[in-house]
């Protein structure tokens, strides 16, 4: 049997090499395939040297959301077009021409985790990140028909642009394997004035039908 093992060891490098060898890059000339973007591309003679066309591309197949969470919009919130990834968008007018922006976005799964998202919101208003231990002290909870909504309220330590501090009210609801994010942001006086409506808005959340 010892001889056999020796033989196997002797043969193995030769046999191993037989299995080596990578797939090369293939170049194939194929009949023209119609591409919807081609005609649009030809119509842009003054485009930069590298031209990106993908604003016209369809979104990935993996992003389809299932049911939508429903809510009652507070009076005084003006519905804005839900551009980009926003499921809904509102503007809230405050005093002195100040306004706050409200956005609703949903993402599959935990979307990076609660702490990571909260620290990102803090970063947006130049606040230092929180640790897992510190997070509990800042989290507030509101009950809704769609489940418990966890939310935070942060004010920047100094004005970032203009004369007012910036404020972020942001909430997360986990529903049917998706995370729903509701955020009101803007100048501190405008967000402070809209805070009560924002909490009522969170309380009005209903699960998808």
């Amino acid at each position: 049997m010892n001889k056999i093992l020796k033989m196997a060891l002797l043969l193995s490098p030769i046999i191993f090499c037989l299995g080596c060898g990578g797939d090369p890059i293939e170049v194939t000339r194929v009949p023209k395939e119609s591409a919807p973007s081609e005609s649009a591309q030809a119509a842009l003679p003054d485009a930069p040297q590298v031209e990106d066309e993908n604003s016209r591309m369809p979104p990935p197949a993996a992003t389809a959301a299932s049911g939508e969470v429903a809510w009652k919009t507070p009076s005084g919130w003006k519905q804005e077009p839900a551009s980009g990834m926003r499921r809904a968008s509102f503007s809230v007018q405050g005093e002195d021409g100040l306004s706050a922006d409200v956005s609703v976005v949903n993402l599959p799964g935990s979307a990076g985790g609660l702490l990571q998202n909260i620290n990102r919101w803090r970063e947006q208003i130049a606040l230092p990140p929180l640790s897992e231990k510190e997070l509990g002290a800042h989290l507030q909870r509101t009950a809704s028909a769609a489940g418990t909504v966890r939310w935070v309220d942060f004010v920047s330590s100094a004005p970032l642009e203009g004369k007012h501090k910036r404020r972020v009210l942001a909430a997360v609801l986990e529903q049917s394997g998706q995370s729903w994010f509701f955020k009101m942001s803007g100048d501190d006086p405008a967000v402070a004035a809209g805070r009560r409506d924002f909490i009522r808005f969170l309380e009005s959340l209903r699960p998808p039908k």
Binding site: P60, M85, G109, R120
Partner: peptide, 26 residues
Amino acid sequence: STLADNPGWLRELPSLATMGVGKKII
């Protein structure tokens, strides 16, 4: 991998893509 929409305001994991659909995808 799994792909999800990346809302700009969330600044979720800035995409490595500078062109195409990937700019808005996590």
